[in-house]
Amino acid sequence: MAAVDDLQFEEFGDVAASLAANPDATMVSIEDPGETPKHQPGPPRGSGREEDDELLGNDDSDKTELLAGQKKSSPFWTFEYYQTFFDVDTYQVFDRIKGSLLPIPGKNFVRLYVRSNPDLYGPFWICATLVFAIAISGNLSNFLIHLGQKTYHYVPEFRKVSIAATVIYAYAWLVPLALWGFLMWRNSKVMNIVSYSFLEIVCVYGYSLFIYIPTAILWIIPQKAVRWILVMIALGVSGSVLAMTFWPAVREDNRRVALATIVTIVLLHMLLSVGCLAYFFDAPEMDHLPTTTVAPNQTAKSS
C-alpha cells in the first residue's frame, strides 16, 4: 500500500514544484487515496516509520497538502465525516504524545507527527483527563495542607471540576479558533509557505496540554518551590512545542507581527498554567474553616 502511494507521489514530485497551485493536480490526488481509505490509517509500524523519514524532506508541504484532500470525501452531516477525525491508531497517539513531551529543536510538531491527519481523539481525552487531574489533585493538595488539623472538615469540592472543565476546554478550542482566524487574515496579506488548518491547530494545542497531566499530579506536593519548578519545566516544553510549530507559519510575515504572535501564544499558555496553579492549588478554602484555624492556615500558606 505504501509503495503505491509512493509511486503516486513520485508522479507528481517533478511537476509539483512548478504546479503547486494547479487545481487539476490536487483533484487527481483526491481521487486515488479516496478509493482505499481503509488501508491508509493502519500501515504496519515499519512502513509508518519510512514515511516519517520521507516526509521530513524539504518538499513535504506539497505532499501533505495533496494528502489533505482525502479528508473531504463525505459531507459533514454524515457520521463518516466525523470518523475521519478519530482515524488514529494507538501507536500514532503515543507517538504524538511523545512528540509533545520531547520537542526536537527545529522540528515542526505538525509536520513530524500529525502529517495532515489531525485527530480529535487526543485533544478531547487529554483535556478530559487534565480537567479531572487538576480538580482531583487540587483537592488532594488542599487536603494534605490541612492534614492533621482537628478542625478541618474534608470536602470533595466537586465544583472545581466544572470550573476546570470550562477553563481547559475554552482554552483548547477558543485560542486555536482565534489563532486560526488570525493566521488566515495574515495569510491573505502575506503569502506564507506553511499554513495550518483549524483542526491541525486544535490538535497541536490539545497534545501540548498533555505535559500538564503529570505536572498536575505532581502538584499535589504542597511545596511552593517544587510547584514552581514543575510549572517552569512544563511551560518550557509545551511552550517550545507551540512556538516551534507556529514559527514557520508566521516567519515570512513582518518581523514585529511574527514575534508578537509567538509571544502572545506563549503568554496565553503561561496564563493558563499559572492561573490553574494559583486558583486550584494555592487558594486555601478560607470560608470553610472556622476562625480558630487562621494561624495554622497561614503557616501552610507560607510553606
Partner: peptide, 17 residues
C-alpha cells in the same frame, strides 16, 4: 479493531475512575 483497543478502553478507565 485490535490496533485501537487501548484508545477505546482508556475513556472507560477514566469514567470509572
Amino acid at each position: 479493531p485490535p490496533n485501537r483497543k487501548a484508545l477505546a478502553v482508556y475513556p472507560v478507565f477514566l469514567f470509572y475512575f
